[in-house]
Design a protein around this nucleic acid. Structure first.
Lengths: 186, 186
DNA sequence: TCAGTAGCGGAACGCTGGTTCCGCATCACC
DNA sequence: GGTGATGCGGAACCAGCGTTCCGCTACTGA
């Protein structure tokens, strides 16, 4: 994992990293709505270099999303003790977190149609983790039982999307959702 | 209002209506992501005809959105008796409603930047109605007080978008949110 | 029925954005 | 330092989409 490509000229490796960094930055700023030229320019390289590193723009996006998805999923597991606490923290984090996190969760949605392997693998891992947490939290009764994993993810995705808009208080939105999750089904 | 254009050849009027119908249909199917050619083709007319009826694609979208926004806002007011009930019903309807409703509320968001007069007028009316309902519901204590109109609209808009995804139960999503709205701030 | 015009279709244009290609610069190894 | 290959930049290409334009069709009113 540390040296994925054994033989790669050092300038080439440097360029690849610059591209990834620039793309991540752009993704954070405007989601997937940046052009390849833009990414290349910000990385200080030409478009040709872009395409030597990634077969297609979608491939780059997949790589980015997969990588960050793993980050996001790994986080909440730390607190093995209290699953409910972990779920709620995950929800809160995803909502009040950076714009990057939000676009990420949104990208999960796209992962449904997309057959990019990077993403679908990472997405599976992600769903397993969160699904496991949710199930455990529901067993203890701390989170309402009438809720599927997809429902939860949809809620989080929606809430984090809305929280990133102007004039919206992410705290408030998060509070509504977490309170709703704790509520007993009517 | 009944005869907006006094002198309009009957075939012209028919075409305009076909265009609107086709556009509404497409909007329902794929949001704003349809091309002018597509709309014209489905209406059985040429692109020229499209542009004789609407100065621009955005104008058509504005017209559609404005019209449907008014519909949406008018609905919940019927039950003047119980404001809280009306708010919750609005939320539920918007989330569990058709894909059209969802894209609509999403379009509200865009109405922020857009300066299309059609939309911004309708959007103002819309916000006033819902804002009024919300305030009254909060006075009675049936809806949590720590929530702004923008928070509510953003949440509903995003929720209705993601609730239309596969595997997601719009009912559940709506239930979590409405329960969260009723909860007392922690 | 006929003339005049409102309205029509769709080819053509310009622009944006993804992708390919190739002559040239730069690195790695001797 | 020299040489061959690796990688580079960015011009060029292509496709899709919004918009414009113009010769022709067909509706209207006499």
């Amino acid at each position: 994992m540390s040296t994925p490509s054994p033989a790669l000229r050092i300038d080439a490796r440097r360029n690849r990293e610059r591209l990834l960094a620039a793309a991540a930055q752009l993704f954070e700023e405007k989601g997937a709505a940046f052009s390849v030229d833009e990414a290349a320019a910000r990385a200080g390289v030409g478009t040709g270099t872009f395409y030597r590193n990634f077969p297609t723009k979608t491939a780059l996006l997949s790589a980015l999303v997969a990588q960050q998805l793993d980050e996001l999923a790994t986080q909440p597991v730390e607190s093995d003790g209290d699953a409910a606490e972990a779920v709620l923290r995950f929800v809160r984090d995803a909502i009040t977190g950076s714009r990057r996190k939000h676009d990420l969760v949104v990208a999960l949605e796209a992962a449904g149609y997309t057959s990019a392997d990077d993403i679908s693998e990472a997405s599976t891992r992600f769903r397993q983790r969160i699904g496991d947490l949710l199930a455990r939290a529901q067993e203890t009764g701390a989170v309402r039982g009438d809720l599927g994993l997809e429902d939860l993810l949809a809620l989080v995705s929606a809430a984090s999307a809305s929280a990133s808009r102007d004039g919206v208080s992410a705290q408030q939105v998060a509070a509504v959702i977490t309170d709703g999750l704790r509520a007993t089904p009517t």
